[in-house]
Each structure stands twice: as C-alpha cells, then as structure tokens.
Design a protein around this nucleic acid. Structure first.
Lengths: 226, 226
DNA sequence: ATTCTTTGTTAGATTAATAAAACTTTATAG
DNA sequence: CTATAAAGTTTTATTAATCTAACAAAGAAT
C-alpha cells in the first residue's frame, strides 16, 4: 500500500474532508453526495464508496439516501487541513511576496505536507495569525475556529463605527505606519468620509479627529462592526 | 486513476528517480535492483516492475539481469527533483531558521509539490544559490549540475591554500562579518594554523597576514582546494 | 564442473482510488 | 396518484503500487 508516501490519512481523504467542511457551511452541516461529487469532480459512486470508508473511521455520519454530515472528529480533521492551507496562504503572501490571487493553488499542494514543525514554524514567523490573507479565520492547533465576522475597513460605509481586529499585511513597513498613526488592535474607528475618487477614507479615533487612510491601508485592516 | 492528486509523474516515480540518481553516483552510473530495493525499502519484485514502467517512459535503460542506468531524460528529471529538494533545504535553513539537521525530512515532502512558481520564488529569495546547506550542488532549472568539489574551510588542514567559492549562511550578520574582514567569493586563503582546542583557524589572505576565524565561521565557508 | 548463494524475475494477490453500467430510492410535475 | 426526473447505490472493472511465493540466472566457493 501507498500510505507510506501519502501519509496516514491520505491526501485524498484530506480533500474529501475539506470539501465536506466547506460545503457544509452553506447548508447548516448537511452535504449531498451530488454536491460533493461535483465539487471534487469525482463521480458519485466513488464518493458514496469513500463516504462509507470515512464513516468506518468515524469521520462522517453516513446513512443511505440521507445527507452527509461530518462528525466532530471529522470537523476537527478538516479544520486542521484548512489551518494548514490558510497558514500557507498567509505565509506565501506575507513572507514570500506572492499576490493574494496567486497563492491558492500553491497552498492546495502544500496543505498536504506532513511536517508539523514546518507549519508550526510558519505560524511562529507570522506571529500566530488568526486570519488568512482573505480575512478567513485560521483554525487553531486543536481545530477550533473563531467565527468572527471580519470585514475590511475598505468595505465600510460613511458613518460606520468599527473596532480594528486584525491586520492582513504584517510587513514591518505597514506595522510602522500603523504605529505612527497610533492604530493598533482594539482601536475604535469611525468612518467620517469616503472619497469616491480614490477610496481614501477620512476617519476619527482616539485623540485623532481627522486622519486620512489610503485605500491600500484600509484594505489591510480587518474590523468588526459595532 | 490518481494522477490528478499525485501529479503527472507521480511522487512515487520521483522517489525512484531520485534514488537511482543518488545511488548511481557511487558506481559510475550503474545501480542494482537490490540496492535500489534496499534504499527505498521496497521489495525487489516491485522495483523490477517499476523499472519496466520507467523504461517504457524512456527514463531508465532496463535489460533483464543487467544493472540499471538512468537515461539522459531520467537524469534530468531526477536532477529537477533534487533541485527542488535542495532549494527547499536551503530555504528552510536560511529563511525560516531551521537547523541543518532538521530540514531533510521536511524537504523530502515539499520536493513533491507541483508549483514551479513556488520553487522559482524560493530560488529568487535565496538569490539563486548554487549549493545547499550541506555544500551539495543545486542543479539549475535545466537539471544541469556543476560538479565542483567544494569542502568546508573547517575541514581543511594547516598549510592548505583554497579559494572561497560559496557561503552556506547568507544571513545579513554573516555577510556583514565577511565584509568587515574583506572576505568575498574568489578570495584566496591559506590556513596558517588550526587551534586544536576550539578549531579556530588562523588564516592569511590579501592584505591580511593573520586573521582568526572561529569554527562557526569556517563551517559556513565553502572552498575549492588549489 | 558442480553446488550453493545471491540476485533478479514471474505469477498471482491485495489495497486504494477511481469509473461505467445498471439498478433503486426519493422528489417533482402533471 | 402516477410518471418521470434526479439523486443515490450496487456491482463490476481498471489502474497504480505494493506484496508473497515460486522460479531462474549469475556469481562464488569448493
């Protein structure tokens, strides 16, 4: 058998779990064999078969003709794969200089690497990020996910009041910039005006009644609406 | 079939090629089925089978009961896998702070990632290194290898004259240190004395008749004997 | 030169992941 | 309430990678 190369729970299994996890978010935990089949581009009989195997491993609840549901164990496994994927995306963007749009395919591959130290190191070098470059939450080492509704400051409207919750870009320059404007996690910001031409925002916060933040900056600040 | 996940030439195939390449260096290009079998920890019949498949793909020359030999195409493929492995090792050490001893297993996994941009980026960030952290040459993008005989300065004896050919550690601090002592690629160094206690070396070069280089420094300098 | 050992090959079987064809269940539309 | 469509399942088959057992060739040792 091939488990030596592909790892204990194979890369194939990881892909099924990830797909189940993703699809189940849109439909309160239930996934149809058909949707899964289409999502993975694998024929339905194959999917049915694999579901029986995953059920035998207590990773999914499976009953004939019923919708599929991940077990708690399955959810955790899936979350850990997603953790590897999102950490990788974050690393590729932050530390290697890839664009947000370029990293998905690469991360799709690297997420299957079996080397905990490697992912732990990325986590450390990124300073234990809670979100990925697209603002999606990164599950923790136990597979737990903080389901916060983050939005980019750049997506807020005039009059919105928000709390800065995370930064996407953690480059030195950006952090220095934030520092120079006394913006840090937890700061409460109000959008006073949004320039239609270049999307620059005039905001107020703390001792700063009127700061201009460029669109680039606003895109890298994730906030929670209040 | 599984090629969608494992890639065009599977990860398994890559491992056979890599092993063939490695083993053939010790024996002017010839490898026995037995050695390959032991090296990969795969039984002989399986190896024979695989050799027939690789022969069908023109990657090895195979004749019953004769030693195995990689074809030119096979050598190139193998070198490209080794390139990915060594680039990865170099990246893990240089950019992520792993120790030389920790990186092999991780690189063993990442070398099978199919994402040319990823390896190209590592290459770029490492400034196109020619050798890996152990001083082994990194094949170029065409799979060509410069077969130079590099040794570490720390392995040289009193009286040896050498030319500095490469540095293993490319950290800012180390490069600054080298700069401060006017050591750069191409400098001709003579080992005057080697302190038995801590392996510090007293060397002479250019305008410097007597510089002391610690063991740590000497281990990071690769040289060509003359 | 005959025997024994090592090395290599063949044949047959297994497992994981897949698909095609045929069949069954559930849902939908008259 | 049937008839049909859609979704799901079963059965059978294929491919890649592996193994064990049995056999064959090459090489070494007397």
């Amino acid at each position: 058998m091939n488990a030596y190369f592909c790892g204990m729970n194979s890369l194939v299994e990881e892909n099924y779990l990830k797909a189940l996890f993703t699809l189940s978010q849109d439909n309160n935990g239930e996934v149809s064999v058909n949707d899964l089949s289409k999502h993975l581009d694998i024929k339905m009989p194959t999917v049915t078969n694999m579901m029986k195997k995953l059920a035998a491993k207590k990773l999914v609840h499976y009953e004939s003709y019923k919708p599929l549901r991940l077990t708690e164990k399955g959810k955790k496994e899936a979350a850990l794969v997603i953790r590897k994927h999102r950490l990788t995306e974050m690393y590729l963007v932050e530390k290697m200089g890839f664009g947000w749009d370029e990293v998905h395919e690469i991360a799709e591959q690297i997420e299957h690497v079996r080397a905990p130290e490697f992912f732990a190191k990325m986590d450390e070098l990124l300073n234990y990020p809670k979100i990925d470059p697209h603002g999606s939450p990164i599950p923790d080492k136990e597979g737990r996910i903080e389901w916060n509704e983050y939005s980019k400051l750049s997506d807020c409207k005039e009059g919105d009041s928000v709390i800065v919750t995370a930064v996407i870009n953690t480059s030195d320059e950006f952090l220095k910039f934030l520092n120079s404007r006394a913006i840090s996690l937890g700061v409460r910001i109000r959008v006073e005006y949004k320039e239609p031409f270049d999307n620059t925002m005039i905001v107020s916060y703390g001792q700063h009644p009127r700061e201009a933040l460029s669109h680039i900056v606003c895109e890298s600040l994730l906030v929670e609406k209040i």
